[in-house]
């Protein structure tokens, strides 16, 4: 199974929390990216977790600084509200962009993005938590509950194709407790599109258990890499 590093940032620092909360600084983005490449990571998802709050994405300068010497694909996101926000990231050197909060607030934006950038360049990033036995979507880096449940969002994406979905299990995020099979089974059943799963990966051996899944296109992780950096 394809494995990606899911790197969340706050200004120039990589952060990691548990269940998207109580975040701690892992290190400066430049140093962390270098270390991840050294570990053999060859695909990256970068998200500015404060962008939807501050209305600006600090990854533009980070990616701009790196892209020339960086030989691996980057999907970048955080606070994208328009095609022009997305193209700022692409021009800086991102290969794809991901959108969460504002796609949920304004449903027309996904269509505008795929029309200008092509379907393969756009990722729908969703943060999911089970509430009253129902998977619900959160926005603003897991801080706010949206009105969508997972099924209704997947139905929306079925009419508004993107290249991939990145789905994070908020409950498992940063816990190393193992991946969320409840959520994965739901995605396998209902998703119209390939999805990258994120949240709770215990160890690399767990990747074997997802090998036969039809719709999962990858697993994104960070905690597992941080642990090996600190060893």
């Amino acid at each position: 199974m394809r494995i990606l590093a899911k790197v969340d940032t706050k200004s120039e620092f990589v952060i990691k929390g548990v269940q998207l909360e109580g975040v701690e600084k892992v290190g400066h983005i430049d140093a962390v990216l270098d270390e991840l490449v050294r570990l053999g990571v060859n695909e990256f998802i970068l998200s500015d977790t404060m962008a939807s709050l501050y209305m600006r994405n600090s990854l533009i300068s980070v990616i701009g600084r790196h892209t020339k010497d960086f030989r691996y694909p980057i999907c970048a996101g955080g606070g994208i509200q328009s095609v022009s926000d997305a193209t700022d990231l692409i021009k800086a050197g991102a290969d794809r962009i991901s959108i969460n909060t504002y796609a949920i607030e304004d449903q027309s934006i996904i269509k505008s993005l795929t029309r200008s950038l092509g379907i393969s360049c756009v990722v729908s990033q969703i943060d999911v938590r089970k509430i009253d036995n129902e998977f619900r979507l959160f926005t603003h880096a897991g801080r706010e509950l949206s009105e969508y449940n997972l099924k209704s969002w997947l139905d929306f994406l079925n009419k508004n194709y993107v290249g991939e979905i990145i789905v994070t299990s908020i409950d498992r995020d940063g816990t190393s407790r193992g991946i969320d099979w409840d959520l994965i089974n739901f995605m396998e059943r209902e998703s119209p599109l390939p999805y990258i799963y994120s949240g709770g990966l215990a160890d690399l051996a767990e990747l074997k258990s997802v090998e036969e899944l039809k719709k999962m296109s990858g697993i994104a992780a960070m905690k597992i890499f941080i642990d090996s950096l600190q060893d």
Binding site: R2, E43, S120, G163, E164, K214, K215, S217, G218
Partner: peptide
């Protein structure tokens, strides 16, 4: 059958 709209990855 399920087929992804885009080929993304290695």
């Amino acid at each position: 059958k399920f087929s992804p709209p885009s080929n993304i990855g290695y």
